[in-house]
Design a protein around this nucleic acid. Structure first.
Lengths: 109, 109
DNA sequence: TAGTCTGACATAGACTATCTATGCATCGAT
DNA sequence: ATCGATGCATAGATAGTCTATGTCAGACTA
């Protein structure tokens, strides 16, 4: 029951932000980058990552093209669209707003 | 899509914390207290609240008894059990841990 | 050259927990 | 007499995560 990590709704935000900072990345890189930046607290499962990327493609927040990695492997590279940037700002401010609200409830003595 | 408020998984925490501070409350009071303490950012829908309280009863985190309110209305009053207190600590530290992690990802320049 | 590990993508199904909508009932005030 | 606020409750829709599984290819090792 203790919904282990990555609260539903925040994965998009994490991906958007990672792409915004790093430019163009493929799926596997995105997952590992998030994991590293969170100091191994957040583990992005592949079964969550790829569906999320599909959703984001459909929404037009990211674009993708096939290419090859440094190690000569085939991979799909993603980058933000302008709509994705807008969405990032929206989701980030929503996240902060909600976290502040929850924190108020928790800390109100 | 923009999952409006109250991220899945945090409602229990909000309820537990509210009961821990206020002692004994009925459902409606819990909802309004959370809403007020969050400065109207978090809106606890009744369709979320009552199922959540049911779950918490089953888990043994709260106990309930029927009574009457100040305004002479029938209502069900809830209070924390010791197990509920433990759960509160657990969920609160998990929440803080995850939020810190997400914040790291978001803020990593 | 066979076998294993890791990188990389993808989907199906289970599960959890929220929201919407609806219903019922009572009290107090207009 | 009606209406708004109080108060509880459930059914169904929805969304998004996780688990499990499968595929394929390059790289390293025995």
């Amino acid at each position: 029951m203790p919904r282990d990590e990555i609260p539903p709704g925040t994965l998009h935000l994490l991906i958007l932000k990672t792409l915004a900072r790093r430019g163009e990345l493929h799926g596997y890189q995105i997952a590992r980058t998030i994991q590293q930046n969170s100091e191994d607290v957040l583990q992005v499962e592949e079964g969550s990552l790829y569906p999320a990327l599909q959703r984001m493609l459909l929404k037009g927040w990211v674009k993708a093209h096939w290419g090859t990695t440094d190690e000569n492997r085939r991979a799909r590279f993603y980058r933000l669209t302008p709509a994705g940037r807008k969405q990032l700002q929206l989701e980030q401010s929503q996240f902060e707003r909600v976290v502040r609200a929850i924190t108020r409830v928790i800390q109100t003595a």
